[in-house]
Amino acid sequence: MSLVEVNNLTKQYGQELAVENLTFRLEKGTATALIGPNGAGKTTTLSMLADLLSPSSGEISLADGLTVGFLPQYPQFFPWLTALEFTEMAAKLSGVGAKKAKLQAIRTLEFVGLEGALYKKTGAFSGGMKQRLGLAQAIVHQPKLLLLDEPISALDPTGRREIMDLLKSLQQDTTILYSTHILNDAEEMTDQLLFMKDGHLIEHGSLEEVKSRHANPRIRIRFHKPAEAVKFAEEHSWKMQVLTDSVYLSVDKEGSSMQQVLHTLSSEKQDILGVEFQTASLEEIFLKVVAGQ
């Protein structure tokens, strides 16, 4: 059995369907990226998994005794507690024994890079520090399932890098489900992609699967002048598109291969600026899938 099975999950607010008929699985030890525009239903989905919201219909089944950690998009802390006091309380409330809790809280705060702010009141924390503390409270009890709502969106590029590395280091013994709209980062840490739009799951699968379905690999040949590109297109029968100074050859079953292209170019002694192999980035795929709906 999978660690988490979600079947036909639906959440309705009055007339509005925030999430409709969502079905997916989370396998043990995998990282899943939940991707979608604002209002797609990502936060609602995560809140239901965290047992904050109850589904209108459908079901969520978690493996027996599964411990969960949750990081909301904008974590709020009791401003009058210090980082250590809060993290220790969080650990205890999640069932960590009183003796271990403090030690584990200190270690976790060091792990997320807050070792200098253990005794500082959280009311004085900056946005980035709050995000780190939010991660600390989510992992302090060493949960088997980690739910993260936009864990890196609010951070600057350096902070993002650091948190991504932290998350990757957690991956060995933790199953992670996180939402994001920063697709470069998603590409870096993902075994499964879930694309959501308007409460629906519109595409899912591993990164390779999704890419093979949508990546449209192509070969771009750049010429010095647009006219040369047009001329090249007229003289060859490949499936291709001309865009300003370049031609784009599609690479599929009927299309060309890099070898053929290079061979042709060198035998014809074409004067070109460059040849490159291109695949669509996750961002382009996402935009395409969303637009195609």
Binding site: A50, L52, F70, P72, Q76, L93
Partner: peptide, 13 residues
């Protein structure tokens, strides 16, 4: 309303 309760409520409280 401030959201501080959220991090308590997501635990087995």
């Amino acid at each position: 309303n401030s959201g501080t309760a959220t991090l308590l409520y997501v635990r087995p409280l």
